[in-house]
């Protein structure tokens, strides 16, 4: 049994148009999901594919219209389990400014544990531990407003880590960051996954970010349309394109070369791999 499991998940919402007519929009349309504890999962999809809606279901911020989602065997629909679900599945959002509550870094990290009612003596320890894990301990007394985007996002991650979740959902955490910030945040997330064994669900539309994931899900029109290891998914270039997704540049280049007649393997993910494959061709 996985840490996050969904069966026949469907989510409808009503959209009000300017002429005051209502339209029913189906954001999720029968999603089945089973995430093994300790995995690094990436969910890909273009805008409006339903990936953010799915993320909010994992944290019980949204409840399914139909179907069920279980976090650590707890059904998110039960009102009495709401805080248990949110403690187990932490969530990091896109805009770092809009999710930091404290006016000082360590106060913000303490916000989650304070809400959970962790005893005072233990909060400080948790905050220090969480800030160390994301490499932000030396900024603990600073105002979040003085930090860079990547640093703020790491503080936000620390805020979730301090709640000791089993699983962290990151909803396009790097979309508003510069390249350095993106790299720092991704490294932090990978470290958490490898060293602490926290399950990570990364939602993104940057192909490069999913290369190191254990499993990739591609979403389109509220459905999971592709699933597999990055190599499996990225070797199906044409199928990906039909879902309006791109592949990493180097994968695309390898695919084009293969089409042009070179005997290259499918699903090349990194520049090094392509170099090796090309060098192997010469011999």
């Amino acid at each position: 049994m996985g840490i996050v499991r969904a069966a026949g998940l469907r989510h409808d919402y009503t959209k009000y148009r300017e002429d005051e007519s209502e339209v029913k929009v189906r954001a999720l349309d029968g999603v089945d999901l089973d995430v093994k504890e300790g995995d690094f999962i990436a969910i890909l999809g273009h805008n409006g594919s339903g990936k953010s809606t799915l993320a909010k279901h994992i944290n019980a911020l949204l409840l399914p219209t139909e179907g069920t989602i279980w976090i650590d065997e707890i059904d998110t629909k039960g009102e009495e389990n709401l805080w248990k679900v949110r403690q187990r599945a932490g969530m990091v959002f896109q805009n770092p400014d809009n999710q930091i509550i404290g006016t000082v870094v360590d106060e913000d990290v303490a916000f989650g544990p304070e809400n959970l009612g962790v005893p005072t003596e233990k909060i400080l320890h948790r905050v220090e531990e969480a800030l160390t894990k994301v490499g932000m301990l030396k900024f603990r007394d600073k105002s979040p407003n003085r930090l860079s985007g990547g640093q703020k996002q790491r503080v936000a991650i620390a805020g979730v880590v301090a709640m000791r979740p089993r699983c962290i959902v990151l909803d396009e955490p790097t979309a508003m960051l510069d390249p350095t910030g993106r790299k720092d945040v991704l490294r932090t997330v990978h470290e958490l996954n490898e060293k602490e064994g926290v399950t990570v669900i990364l939602i993104t539309h940057y192909m490069e970010e999913v290369v190191d994931a254990d499993r990739v899900f591609v979403m389109d029109k509220g459905k999971i349309v592709m699933e597999g290891t990055p190599r499996e998914v990225f070797s199906r270039v044409e199928e990906l394109k039909s879902h309006r997704m791109d592949v990493p540049q180097v994968t695309e280049l390898a695919w084009e070369l293969k089409k042009a007649g070179l005997a290259l393997p499918d699903g090349i993910l990194t520049t090094e791999e392509l170099v090796e494959a090309l060098a192997a061709l010469k011999h």
Partner: peptide, 10 residues
């Protein structure tokens, strides 16, 4: 956004 982030953090 902030309200959602606060709820997500219990």
């Amino acid at each position: 956004d902030l309200a959602m982030a606060m709820e997500a953090r219990c």
